[in-house]
Design a protein around this nucleic acid. Structure first.
Lengths: 229, 229
DNA sequence: TAGATTGTTAATCGATTAACAATC
DNA sequence: TAGATTGTTAATCGATTAACAATC
């Protein structure tokens, strides 16, 4: 109904409604870099700056200024020409787009050394997450206190997710237990899974999976090492 | 789990010498998928198949057949039209290209829970790696036995790398110690670093770094979760 | 204003997909 | 051979880079 065509006159008028989620879909490559920008903004803020240029922020994030500005342009126009970006404001916008403007609850399945490392990692809170629960199948582990939480049995997972409102689950089990862990997480209602098990997980299409496979990372490094050494 | 096999004798038609670099440079996206193909080949072999089609292997690896064939075409012509790929031979070729045809030594710096998890992870050997040494700065940790290895002090790192021929180092320290750990690894001669610390590492251009940042992974999942829920 | 820096455009580059001729 | 499947080509798609007009 409302004319979408742009009259061939003076361009540059920004009619986009500010403050809302962008209409265009964000490129996946851009989304993947946003956490780095957020982290870089924290570092800049820690250094005491209230404003930052694309030049400086790009350097802190390890990208080019052109790429940074291009990425940010997908979120809207939050900078000021000739000045730069307001650190707090931009951080707030990126956090909102990422969905971590408010803290998100995360549950961890599998409390071996890796789960332990995750549970005692102190950096989650400042990145928008709170560890809401730990689950393990080993009777020797259930009931123990790890990182301020008591490890619960698998049967308690669904109640745990419902009680805490967790939307993301982490699979830190041995490989052979990973699919069961994922199934349980899906059944309990999480919509995102981060797995460290070297196994392809089958999940419904509405559940997003990201996999960290240490051996694969090492093999990619080996490729480069074998050409360079 | 079946052990990874070293390329057998002269099986294929146009064998190049193992370890030689291909004519054209491999696309980075292709290199990043090769570990998945190698892993999928192990699964196929475990199922007892000596031959595999691009259709089946692609499914096991979670890509399309077209993408798999395109990727493999960069390595050379190792399939047989109308037949498929010889599982052992193809695995050998991919392992050679990745530089894991022979076992590579890896050293881990930082033996907290994460380093512990890495040290006791049993899956390295079958993916082409051997854990050659553990280093930590904590006097309470030095000298303890973890995963069959005695934890050594930072001062022993260079001798360790030289003795074992390690080419890859893993940084599993707290964030504040990560740059020092990376510097020490670079000084000792490794050419690849896998870091789990949420810090940008400064390394010389000849050293390759791959970073796994758990909080960033969670934030990317949060982005999708916030659109879906 | 004069200088600085963004936001955007256009060009380049790289990766993916689809289709099919080659060939086992 | 006839059927099957690869390897390759061409088309499409997406991402990066460079440059500069807009504008603070």
């Amino acid at each position: 109904m409302t004319g979408r065509q742009v009259p061939p006159g003076p361009v540059g008028a920004d009619d986009r409604a500010p403050g809302t989620t962008p209409g265009q879909p964000l490129p996946a490559a851009t989304v993947a870099r946003l956490p780095g920008y957020l982290h870089a903004l924290d570092a800049v803020r820690g250094a005491g700056a209230a404003l930052v240029t694309s030049e400086r922020l790009a350097q802190a994030a390890g990208v080019t200024p052109a790429q940074l500005r291009k990425d940010l342009s997908f979120l809207g126009s939050y900078g000021r020409r000739g000045v730069g970006y307001d650190v707090d404001h931009l951080a707030g916008r990126i956090a909102a787009v990422l969905g971590v403007a408010t803290t998100r609850a995360v549950v961890v399945v599998g409390v071996g050394h890796l789960g332990h490392a995750l549970a005692t990692y102190g950096g989650f809170a400042e990145r928008g997450f709170t560890l809401a629960g730990l689950v393990d199948a080993d009777p020797a582990v259930i009931g123990t206190r790890v990182g301020g939480l008591v490890v619960e049995p698998p049967a308690a997972l669904m109640a745990l997710v419902m009680r805490t409102g967790a939307t993301i689950g982490v699979v830190a089990t041995p490989a052979h237990a990973a699919q069961d862990a994922a199934d349980a997480l899906v059944a309990s209602g999480v919509t995102g899974i981060l797995t460290f098990a070297p196994r392809a997980l089958r999940v419904p299409p509405n559940v997003e999976v990201r996999a960290v496979d240490v051996a694969s990372e090492l093999q990619i490094l080996a490729f480069h090492a074998s050409r360079h050494a």
